[in-house]
């Protein structure tokens, strides 16, 4: 089968399966998969920064900015959902610019420390600015998402919205990664001094990758706000930021699909165990096994399986010619 045809068939099957979730799973799984796709956007949006070699442990802060901006605009000023979402994403990107411009000159653990601090700063602002965000009382009464003036009242319609958002964002990110810009990001990640010596403006490209990630994290946050309809500052803390990073590493950083796989796998991992007293233990063991046996991420599973098959074939006794 030609490669392109194979890819198209797999993608078509995936899209059909995604669209069938409301039919096959009912409202609960619509809810679960809507959050899975939100996590997919978050995980994928961190990839440009990671590709540039910047360890960003503060992505949840930008999700939070998008969530609160969109929620407050829609709730207090009756701004239509589409515009509120865009404003949330743009403000996240603008804050990304303000934070990224001075801090992206830092490398390795120093940049990571700045992002960790930033998560706490944003969480505390959301917590302490009570008159705006209602602080630890939580922001409730956020309108449901709408499109062209039509409120998406059902969970299924909201699910299709996030599937649409995820598809568009993934396409944009995929295109960018496979463009000249993506190559530049990769070159910076592999050796920024070398890239600079070839004339690449590494500060500008790192900033662009960072801002782009912030924009899409803000988009995911805005959707999340209108989907869950309750915002609580601790939700966007360090744990969420770490989860987004973990999606990338567990899925595998070596391929565009890695973060997507990681987000799907980890978001769904606890579901079969939910309700069991050993839920947390099962989750931890499954994650440990993945990290131990697939250090390159889930994306390396087919390769590992093929290797195992080859090894078993080589180990089996060769039939004697006399037999």
């Amino acid at each position: 089968m030609p490669r392109k045809l194979g890819v198209s068939i797999v993608l078509a099957v995936l899209v059909i399966l995604a669209l069938l979730v409301p039919e096959l799973g009912g409202d609960y799984y619509v809810h679960v998969f809507a959050l899975v796709f939100t996590n997919v956007i978050l995980a994928a949006s961190l990839r440009p920064s990671l590709t540039c070699g910047q360890l960003n442990i503060g992505h949840s802060a930008f999700m939070s900015i998008g969530a609160y901006t969109s929620a407050l605009l829609a709730k207090n000023l009756a701004v239509p959902f589409e515009i509120a979402l865009l404003c949330g994403a743009l403000l996240a990107a603008a804050v990304g610019l303000a934070i990224g411009y001075p801090s992206l000159r830092l490398r390795g653990v120093y940049f990571a420390m700045v992002t960790v601090a930033f998560v706490e700063v944003i969480r505390l602002i959301a917590q302490l600015w009570v008159s705006l965000t209602r602080g630890m009382s939580g922001l409730s009464g956020i309108p449901k998402p709408s499109l062209l003036g039509m409120t998406l009242t059902t969970r299924a319609s909201q699910y299709y919205l996030v599937v649409g958002l995820a598809v568009v964002i993934l396409l944009v990110l995929w295109k960018l990664e496979h463009s000249r810009l993506g190559l530049i990001w990769k070159s910076i990640g592999m050796g920024d001094n070398l890239a600079q010596s070839l004339g690449v403006n590494i500060a500008r490209h790192k900033l662009l990758a960072f801002m782009l990630g912030c924009f899409f994290a803000g988009t995911a946050g805005a959707f999340y706000a209108h989907f869950i309809r309750f915002l609580f500052p601790p939700e966007f803390g360090f744990l969420m930021a770490t989860n987004i990073l973990v999606y990338n590493y567990v899925g595998g950083r070596g391929h565009f699909v890695g973060p997507i796989l990681g987000a799907i796998f980890l978001s769904l991992l606890s579901e079969p165990f939910r309700g069991s007293p050993y839920e947390t233990i099962f989750f931890s063991i499954a994650m440990l096994l993945t990290i131990l046996f697939l250090p390159g991420g889930l994306i390396t599973l087919p390769g590992k399986l093929a290797e195992l098959k080859r090894w078993r074939a080589a180990a089996s006794p060769t039939p004697s010619p006399a037999a």
């Binding site: 490669r3 797999v10 796998f265």
Partner: peptide, 15 residues
């Protein structure tokens, strides 16, 4: 192709 096959496998398993 291999990663996409993994995604498909995961999606089917999830459903």
């Amino acid at each position: 192709r291999a990663p996409l096959a993994v995604v498909a496998l995961f999606a089917v398993a999830a459903l």
